[in-house]
Computed example of a mutant assay.
Amino acid sequence: MAQPDVVVAGAGVIGAACAEALSAAGLRVVVLDRGAPASGTTAAGEGNVLVSDKVPGPELELAKASRALWPELLAGLRVELGDELAGVEWDPKGGLVVATAEAAAGPLREFAAAQRQSGVDAVELSPVEARALEPLLTKGITAAVHYPEDAQLQPVLAATTLLAAVRARGGEVRSGHTVLGVTTNAGGAVSGVRTSQGVVSCAAVVNACGPWAGEFAAAAGAPINVLPRRGLVLVTAPLPESVRHKVYDADYVGATVSGDADLQTSTVVESTRAGTVLIGSSRERVGFDETVRVDVLAELAGKAIGLFPFLADVPVMRAYGGFRPYAPDHLPVIGEDPRLPGLWHATGHEGAGIGLAAATGRLLADLHQGRKSFVDAEPFRVDRPAVTGEVPA
């Protein structure tokens, strides 16, 4: 193909969503990744498209926009690509958040009330009503909130569908291309991307490298404070229908917004279309240490059994882990870097990237094209102190 207008560095779901939105705007796009598409953070995700776990504020607004956009985007891609290339196992099954201690009941209700003020459909349920939705739940529930808008998709299929659209529009997706930095022109703007396979000339590059976004930004000469945060997930053997919604304990929200580097675990349980049950979640900042800690898996299993006692007799088939891109102020980084014209960032989503991907791609394309953005872009600016300040060790 001719010289691309934009190179997207990273073929995970965020990079794929950005590439799709840019190609939909008529731009020539090349996506580069050191591995296979969707083989990094995206492959280690659960496919959550959530509004239930976001505190009122900019990320919740982005999540609401993305939740509304995903079905529309997928329907359009199905028409464009056909069912075979556009099947992502979209499941608008809803979420259920429960408290299992008296002290947690009040804060859960207050959180739901605040979300309702922000336009989220959050329905308070009695313990009896909660067990009607999830008959196998523990009887030790003190409060519950149903979130009908929560959904799930298969993250690898979602990313590869978005990339299929890029290819269909004349773009390229290249594996085995590790991005090493950028080249600049006489005016100091991006003129290309240096890779392990040579330089790819372009007028703009999108840093969608996920947990490695900080490394690429530093190599490009515009460091950002995005760090890896590790998480582990357990997968059971396939079961008959058992867990109907995404179900998690109220302490999950606190873990998602915590900046603590030490290990945190919270109970998250949901089924997949294949019948397996996914059990999470853990968070810890350990750099890129890939060690699978048995004690963490045991803690996840124990907490899941506390929520769904039947799981005590269910075999675990496997466990997997991955690194999520963490920004200290818990907001994604979306937009052009004012220090280096032509360098764009789309990262820092931590564990919410799959849900936020559709809106992130649309927002970045709006900004790149100079259109009025469909959500407020200001909170996600690159040049905020938490992102461009001193990067901790």
Rank of each mutant, 00 (worst) to 15 (best):
residue 71 P to E: 07
residue 176 G to P: 08
residue 22 L to N: 01
residue 300 L to V: 08
residue 144 A to M: 07
residue 58 P to M: 03
residue 45 G to L: 03
residue 288 F to E: 13
residue 188 G to V: 03
residue 64 K to V: 08
residue 342 G to F: 02
residue 150 D to L: 03
residue 187 G to A: 08
residue 253 V to Y: 04
residue 152 Q to C: 07
residue 342 G to S: 06
residue 192 G to D: 10
residue 14 I to N: 01
residue 176 G to F: 01
residue 247 V to C: 06
residue 30 V to E: 14
residue 195 T to Q: 10
residue 56 P to I: 00
residue 296 V to K: 00
residue 134 E to K: 07
residue 169 R to G: 02
residue 30 V to T: 13
residue 98 V to T: 12
residue 165 A to F: 03
residue 169 R to P: 07
residue 21 A to C: 06
residue 269 V to S: 04
residue 329 D to I: 12
residue 71 P to F: 12
residue 245 H to Q: 11
residue 92 P to Y: 01
residue 51 V to Q: 14
residue 238 P to W: 01
residue 207 N to L: 08
residue 381 R to K: 08
residue 318 R to W: 11
residue 38 A to F: 04
residue 16 A to H: 05
residue 237 A to T: 11
residue 142 T to E: 15
residue 384 R to Y: 10
residue 314 V to I: 15
residue 3 Q to W: 02
residue 54 K to G: 08
residue 181 G to V: 08
residue 333 V to I: 13
residue 91 D to M: 14
residue 270 E to N: 03
residue 193 V to Q: 01
residue 150 D to S: 00
residue 190 V to M: 02
residue 160 T to N: 11
residue 325 P to E: 02
residue 73 L to Y: 00
residue 105 A to F: 15
residue 183 T to M: 03
residue 346 A to H: 05
residue 193 V to G: 01
residue 174 R to Q: 08
residue 250 A to S: 14
residue 238 P to A: 10
residue 228 P to F: 01
residue 332 P to G: 10
residue 315 P to C: 13
residue 57 G to H: 00
residue 267 T to C: 14
residue 290 E to M: 10
residue 64 K to H: 13
residue 180 L to A: 04
residue 85 L to A: 12
residue 390 E to H: 09
residue 162 L to D: 05
residue 107 P to Q: 03
residue 124 E to F: 06
residue 196 S to K: 07
residue 252 Y to L: 10
residue 57 G to S: 08
residue 202 C to W: 07
residue 198 G to F: 13
residue 294 V to S: 03
residue 12 G to V: 06
residue 335 G to P: 07
residue 166 V to F: 15
residue 383 D to G: 02
residue 390 E to R: 12
residue 7 V to W: 07
residue 275 G to L: 05
residue 268 V to Q: 11
residue 55 V to R: 15
residue 188 G to F: 04
residue 173 V to D: 12
residue 131 R to I: 09
residue 54 K to E: 08
residue 41 T to G: 08
residue 207 N to T: 09
residue 87 G to C: 06
residue 144 A to V: 06
residue 160 T to D: 12
residue 190 V to E: 02
residue 180 L to F: 03
residue 277 V to E: 06
residue 267 T to R: 01
residue 174 R to G: 05
residue 380 F to T: 15
residue 174 R to V: 11
residue 275 G to M: 05
